[in-house]
Every structure is written in structure tokens, then in C-alpha cells.
Design a protein around this nucleic acid. Structure first.
Lengths: 247, 247
DNA sequence: CGAGCACTTGATCGCTTTCAATAGCTGTGG
DNA sequence: CCACAGCTATTGAAAGCGATCAAGTGCTCG
């Protein structure tokens, strides 16, 4: 199977995603109820966490690692429709079948809940339902931004947008000073980036090279990126960049 | 202003979207609370209901008519990110600013709630919060299907997909017998379809002509469509079509 | 050292866009 | 009633961008 090794169960109050995951709004006494039904599972990099069309018997949160949500057409064309980072929620309460493939792109640890108990718990714990609504609305916003990228941006803009998304996300997780150059690692292969952006892997490679030649980014190895001027990157991404800085 | 004429207030129990909108799960006594804070507004075809970036002072449901959610880049490229039909919800509780432009593409009647009272009512009415979560999850699924279309489908497949979406939606609203040929009207101009599909209006026009020449659809005027063979249309759309018919 | 994999780069192809002209329809005003 | 403006839609020709096909590089691991 895809499962690697049973992890040590962590106390919720020590959990690294305690304040961002679906349980973020829970009171200590509510956490106790979640503790009772939770269990950890780990997946190897590259393994499938969920198969589209399969029965879903659990929902859960990504605790560590990165996973992707993808859709595939009969002839093999695939489109990524979600990039799951620590604290992101997997699965849909109230539905039995999985709609998308979920794949671990690094080793992944999940905090899982059997679906039925989670659903009943959600019904008597508004803090969970409320947080899930909030997270789902955020995901919907992200999906709509993504739709603009897929429908209207050029290959170069797509790459620049992706880099800025990763950079921003990395900065918010690691709380590095955004002073000066941004530095981060690409969490995806060229092929996975292509599936994210609706491009081919060749075009991804070419546009990354082009941005490097033009001095928008610097590369060390294949994955390690330095952004000397973030505003320049945002310009390349075609995003509204006048974000109310001054009055 | 964009507002047309004050509509007569309708009793919730007589409302055409009573069982599909955000109030669908409410008990009669809960409806009373909604009645107290609701008001109707109507908008002329073509008028802007909400401007991206503006303060949102209300949320609400589309009662009749069709509206679009769009995003526009600085240079004018626009991408539709939502198509709002009767019963669809507009606005996001817990956020003050609007993220997208909302435009009426036909005359539209909205059932509105001032945001603050709605939020407090939602807190003590789990039926509303639960229904809103359900609707948001549905929208997220639709957005992800849309992302596959934008990222990976050809122009011809995009048109065929759009037609099948409209056909299906029309069938579910009007409850016509799906027996034999499907007949419906396109709710959007060629340009709006282009913004939906991430194409130019010329390409939309060309592909519609091509599908007509190939007998996949028949056209009467610019908007009235007949689909003689729905399975054929689904093939053209590139969608998984083997939807578990037999064992 | 060779196999396998991720990635890069080159050359060509073709689909969608762009630019442009035209048709059809509706409403307005002489 | 007809002419004309304005809008939506269609169609043609040419251009361009990203896909496809193909070769080669560099790295890791057995």
C-alpha cells in the first residue's frame, strides 16, 4: 500500500497546524472530541492518497508535506485543480465518492478522521463547520484567481504568477523577513508545474529559462529560486500591483 | 442608478427559489427571521450589480435572471469566474470588499440581506450556515471542472462543454423530458461565452459554426439551440461519458 | 559505468488569435 | 417608410504563441 509507517500521535495542542487547520477555532474541550476520532497516516512521495471515483471513508488535514489535486481526461491530459499544503483540508463532508486524484508530491503526513464520526461531530460543533466554510470560501477565491491565470494569461505570465504564489506562501509559512531578495524552493517538478498552469513541461522549462536570462529570477540547481525584485516579478505576472500602499 | 423598480415583496413560502437557495434548509420559524431583514432589488440587463473593490454592504440570492462574476486585468483581458443563476448566492459573509465584478446579463431580481444582520443571523441558525457550506462546496467543484476546461480543452471541446452545461442546467430547472432532442436558448452573447471559456469571440463563433456544420447542434437565430443527440455532444466535450451505466 | 529520470534546448507544426471586412438585426429620426 | 447608427455575429487571411517531436545534458542510484 501507499501507507508508510504509523506516526506517533501528537497532542492537538502541540500540533503544528493547530491554528490554521479545520480545528483552528475549536476550544480545548472541543479538541478532546477530535482527538478521540483522529489518526495519522503517512504517504511516500509520489504515492496516491486518494483515487478519483473511489469511495472516501475519511477526511482530514495535511499536517506536513505537499499533495496535489488533479483531474485527468480519458486521453491522459491532466489538470491540477488544487495544491495542498500543511493545514489544507482533504475530502468533502456529505459526499461519499472522491472527485479528484490526490497525490503526495513529497512525503506527506495526514491527520485523518473517519468521515461519519467527523460529520456527526461537525453537526454539534459550529466552530468546525464555521472554520470549514471559511476555508472553502478561501479555496473558491484561489480557484477563481487560478481561472484567470488559465484562461487569460500568457505562458510567461503564468510562470511568473506561479512563482509569486509560491514565494508569498513560503514567506507566510516561514515568516522570513521579506526584506530584500526572496529565496525559496520549487515544490513541484516541471511536469507538475505544467499541470498546474495548463502548459507543457517544455514550455515551463523555456519560460523559466527566459525569466532567468532576463534577470527576473536566479536559479541554483533546478529547484532553488532567488527573486531579487519581487515587484518586478509581480509586473511579469500581470497582476494588479497597485495594492494600496499609500494614501 | 442600476436599480430599476422596487419589486413587490414575496412571502418566502411562495418564493420560486425557496428550496434551492441559501434558505433551503430553514424551518418556517427560521424563515420569519430572514423575512425581517430581506429586501428585493432589481437590475436592468447589462447593469453592474457590484464593482470589484467596492465595499459590500449586502449579500443575497439571485431570484430571477442571470448574472456573471468576472475578473479583469489592467489591460482589459477579462475572465468570467462565475455564472449566477436563480438560487445562487452572491457575496461572502465575513468579508467587506467585493473581489469580483457582478453584472446582470438579463434583468435580474435579487433577494438581499444587509451583511451584518445576515452574519449574526447565520451564527444562531446552523441551517443557513450548513446550506451555505454545501453551496460553496458545489461551487468549488464547478470551479475545478471549469479549470480543466480552461487549462486543457481545445476550443471545440470548450464550446461543446459549455453547451452541455447549459443544456443540463436548463433541463434541471425546467424539468422538461430529456427524451429526444434537447432545446434551449444560449443565455450569453458570443463575447460573454468567450470570457467564460478563455477564448476570443471570433473563435467562439467559428466553433459554433463548425459544430452546426457537423450536425452536432442546430441553430435557429443566434441563440436558440437544438441538440439532436446529447451523447454526441458529450463526446465532443471530451468529458468522461461512461458514467457507470451497466455493471 | 550504465540505466533512469528530470530537465533543457532546438526545429517545426498547427491551433487560436489578431486584424479586417461584411452581414443581419433593432431602434431612431427625418 | 427608409436611411443610418450601433450592436452582435460571421467569415476570411495572416501572424504568433505554445505544442509537438526530437536530441542531448546532468544528476542519482544501482
Amino acid at each position: 500500500m501507499t501507507q508508510v509507517a504509523p506516526s506517533v500521535t501528537v497532542d492537538c495542542s502541540d500540533c503544528p497546524i493547530r491554528h490554521r487547520a479545520v480545528c483552528a477555532r475549536c476550544e480545548p474541550e472541543e479538541l478532546v472530541n477530535l482527538e478521540e476520532i483522529k489518526y495519522y497516516r503517512t504517504y511516500q512521495s509520489g504515492s496516491r492518497i486518494i483515487w478519483a471515483g473511489d469511495r472516501m471513508d475519511f477526511v482530514g488535514s495535511v499536517v506536513s508535506g505537499i499533495a496535489t489535486l488533479t483531474q485527468t481526461m480519458e486521453d491522459g491530459r491532466t489538470q491540477m485543480v488544487g495544491l495542498l499544503l500543511p493545514s489544507d483540508f482533504v475530502g468533502r463532508p456529505g459526499r461519499n465518492g472522491a472527485e479528484y486524484d490526490v497525490t503526495a508530491t513529497t512525503d506527506v503526513t495526514m491527520c485523518c478522521f473517519r468521515k461519519k464520526p467527523f460529520e456527526t461531530l461537525m453537526e454539534r460543533t459550529p466552530h468546525i463547520a464555521h472554520r470549514l466554510l471559511e476555508m472553502t470560501l478561501d479555496e473558491l477565491d484561489a480557484a477563481r484567481e487560478w481561472m484567470l491565470l488559465l484562461g487569460r494569461k500568457t505562458a510567461r505570465e503564468k510562470i511568473a504568477s506561479f512563482l509569486s504564489i509560491i514565494a508569498r506562501r513560503d514567506a507566510s509559512l516561514n515568516l522570513r523577513p521579506t526584506k530584500g531578495a526572496l529565496v525559496f524552493d520549487l515544490p513541484l517538478t516541471r511536469e507538475a508545474m505544467a499541470d498546474y498552469l495548463g502548459l507543457t513541461l517544455e514550455t515551463v522549462s523555456r519560460q523559466i529559462s527566459a525569466l532567468r536570462k532576463d534577470g527576473v529570477i536566479e536559479l541554483e540547481g533546478k529547484r532553488h529560486v532567488t527573486v531579487p525584485d519581487f515587484d518586478r516579478l509581480l509586473e511579469e505576472a500581470g497582476d494588479d500591483n497597485d495594492g494600496g500602499m499609500l494614501a
